[in-house]
Amino acid sequence: MHLQLCPLQLEDFDELVSHAASYPPGDDLVGPPTPICCLVKTREEAEARLTFHFNKQRSRFTGDPTVRYMKVVETTNEKSSIISIARWHFYPNGYNFDTQIHWETHNHIPGQRIPQGFNIPLHNHILTTRDGARSSWIPANAPCWILMHMVTQPSHRGKGAAGMLIKWGMEQAERDGVPAYLEAGVMGMPVYKRYGFVQMGDVLEVELNELGLDMVFRICLMAYFPARWKGGGDARVG
């Protein structure tokens, strides 16, 4: 087994959708919060979810100048396959919610097929709340890197792919001398801490009861400060 880190290519989106035919339903690279907003039990449902999800990602790949998609490919004697992806962003003038949030939310497009059972209001609420909170902990108008999406196929976790994608972003932050930020699930926070990220303030709690899900979505706000960064880190905890 050999793992290789490299930029994601436009044609890779077809392979990512094809995972529905190669793996059990849900063993794919659709990242949070989509899995809790659109449950799948059959290959047909998995393919519909993957197609919908990666059509959005494909449009972002071609249209969002801030984005840097990276992938980890596993090569064995039999084949090579993408097992993990990340979507890092570089904002030379700082992150702006008003101009960027449309990339995260699913907005109605005439003729677009939405997978049956996809709770779009729930999906949009989680990401709008997450991204809207950035002004409270990420300095305005300050250059930064942000990790907004990273997922490894469940059947391939524990091989080191996530670490390769995390370290890639940290290397960009070190090169540019700017912080790197991310929002992590509570279960994923120890992974990022292992690589040098620190928690910033309190956990962000997103109430979902009014949107069809009896739970609270908890998000850890995290940052990595490179050695050359001249700012302060007063908000960090833990």
Rank of each mutant, 00 (worst) to 15 (best):
T129G: 00
A173E: 01
L182S: 05
N119A: 10
P92M: 05
Q4G: 06
K79Q: 12
W103Q: 01
D64Q: 03
A46Y: 08
D131A: 12
Y23R: 14
R58L: 13
F13W: 09
D14Y: 08
V73F: 08
R157S: 03
G238H: 03
V151Q: 01
L147T: 07
Q172R: 15
S59D: 15
I85T: 10
M148W: 14
S81R: 15
M170V: 04
V30A: 02
P115A: 11
W88Q: 10
L211S: 06
V67G: 02
L8S: 03
E11V: 08
G232S: 14
P121Q: 11
F54A: 00
S22K: 15
L127Y: 12
P179D: 03
D202M: 06
F197D: 00
L29G: 07
V203W: 01
T99C: 02
T66D: 06
T128D: 10
M187Y: 11
E207Q: 15
D12G: 02
H19G: 07
F217I: 03
C220K: 03
L122W: 08
N77V: 11
P154N: 05
G163H: 02
L213H: 13
T105W: 01
L221T: 12
S136A: 12
M70D: 07
H19D: 12
P65D: 04
A46Q: 02
G232D: 13
T51C: 03
R113T: 15
Y91N: 04
L39S: 14
T76H: 10
Y195E: 00
N107H: 12
L122G: 04
D14M: 02
F61G: 02
D64Y: 00
H19Q: 13
Y95I: 03
H106T: 14
Y181S: 04
F90P: 03
R68M: 15
A235I: 03
M222A: 01
G188L: 06
Q153K: 14
S155R: 02
W229T: 01
K79E: 13
L213K: 15
H2G: 13
F61Y: 14
A133M: 06
F97L: 05
V40E: 01
T75A: 12
L50D: 10
T66I: 02
L16W: 12
N55E: 12
D131W: 11
L204K: 01
I82T: 08
Q9M: 10
P25K: 03
P65Y: 00
I138S: 04
M1Y: 13
C38Y: 09
K79C: 09
G132W: 05
L3M: 14
Q4E: 15
P33I: 06
I120E: 05
R58I: 09
G231W: 11
A142C: 15
V178F: 02
G31M: 11
Y181P: 04
N119E: 08
Y91K: 03
P179S: 05
Y95C: 01
L10S: 13
R68S: 14
S80L: 09
I120Y: 05
R157C: 07
N77C: 07
P115E: 10
G196A: 05
K159T: 06
I138N: 04
L122K: 10
F118W: 15
E47P: 05
V186A: 00
D214P: 05
P110Y: 07
E174T: 08
G212W: 11
P32S: 14
K79L: 10
H149T: 13
G212A: 06
Q199M: 02
W103H: 09
S136N: 13
T51P: 04
T66R: 04
Y195H: 04
D14F: 06
D12R: 00
K193T: 00
N96Q: 05
